[in-house]
Design a protein around this nucleic acid. Structure first.
Lengths: 227, 227
DNA sequence: GATTGTGAAACCATTCACAGCC
DNA sequence: GGCTGTGAATGGTTTCACAATC
């Protein structure tokens, strides 16, 4: 409630909010109640001034001379990220990747219940993965409408990605998380995020190569957060 | 050979090189030989001036009035990314995610052969995943030395990530791609990239939430590339 | 006429440094 | 004394706009 129409949060800050949230949840689980920007910075591998500036976008929720209250910050970040309520998601593609996303638990736990898993392959339809029954892709419109799904996850091979995205959108989804290596195009108003696992490897080998040639040894590259 | 000690490539540019490579490979497969910055920009969902500036870091390989030669650009980008030769990788963790990374093919194909898959769980050791035998984590040092592995992939639950990273590093790896939701800390000289699948979802729900409240409809958010 | 390559301008993000507060 | 919050300084990225080239 406090911060409706505060100054606009910088895009770079938004991309770090999930990291802060992860760190704070970790602290909470270890029973820590208060934390300084210095400590958060160290845990995240970034600089303390950045932490303070980022957190100040949420509002002035720290106490000078003391630090931040962990549980209160968690609440504020969750609210900002839109996860003070749940976001049911549908996964298209019951292959290895789809299964990994379900199995990893990172999705279902905390705010993103997986309410449907569908595939185009008749052979997979009806089988069970974890406690989820694999549905047919034709069930998408009904599923999305009945469970009020806003976010669809594309976990299919590249060739099928555009088709799947189109079907998700026409079924009513307004955001897409795409794990296929081919970007999909979408009409205005639909948000897409593209995750390419191999791309991360390429950036890594770039640095690896140049480490050897340019800076022989003691260089600390910042840890990077995806996106 | 042409561009040793050209001006330093911007970090933001590096993060887009994998995208350009993907686009160019796609073009090549459709038999297209020449391309303009405009076309690349359109396919990547970005602005043409950015494409030109990015590509100019590699050298002046375009022809004014004409455009770029696809195959030559591919060669240059691959060289810059360090994938004119192969980078053998080891994956630690034979769970769903490890299997998905192997199965997706995006790794093994093109320059990153998976030369080892190990797990700490004795029950999994010895089983076959695709054509790979699952090894025991104790085999890491031998594997890394004999196959000259520089990059290790961490695909284990968060609790185990730091331990796995430490073992990879002491076995001789100098870069780590971490899929566990907990960042690992490493000594200077070791490069880490952190990929958090749930983090992408959180950013998506942030935009989803604010789309409704702030910008009601026609807004095109740029597609984003992970990292 | 078309398209690149690149200075210069505009914009955004990070870091510094310190006043303000506990 | 310790730590936050934030203006100001710095550094990096994107976009513009146009001369150079084919």
């Amino acid at each position: 409630m406090a911060n409706r129409s505060r100054r606009k949060i910088a895009e770079a800050t938004i991309s770090r909010l999930p990291m802060y949230l992860r760190i704070l949840l970790e602290l909470t689980e270890s029973g820590v109640a208060g934390v300084s920007s210095e400590k958060i910075a160290e845990m995240g591998g970034i600089n303390a001034a950045k932490v303070r500036k980022d957190l100040s976008y949420l509002g002035s929720y720290g106490t000078r001379g003391v630090g931040y209250e962990v549980s209160f910050l968690i609440f504020q970040i969750q609210r900002e990220l839109g996860i003070d309520h749940e976001w049911p998601v549908v996964i298209v593609g019951a292959g290895n990747l789809g299964q990994a996303l379900i199995g990893s638990g990172g999705f279902g736990r905390r705010s993103y219940p997986i309410v449907g898993l569908v595939d185009i392959d008749e052979a997979k339809v009806g089988s069970l993965i974890g406690s989820l029954r694999v549905g047919h892709i034709d069930e998408l419109p009904a599923l999305i409408a009945s469970r009020k799904v806003a976010i669809g996850v594309v976990a299919v091979p590249g060739e099928a990605a555009q088709m799947v995205a189109d079907r998700l959108i026409s079924a009513g989804v307004t955001s897409i998380l795409n794990f296929a290596p081919i970007p999909v195009s979408v009409p205005a108003g639909i948000t897409v995020r593209q995750v390419d696992l191999a791309c991360e490897l390429q950036i890594l080998s770039f640095h690896e190569q140049h480490k050897k040639k340019v800076v022989p040894w003691p260089q600390v590259l910042p840890k990077s957060v995806s996106a």
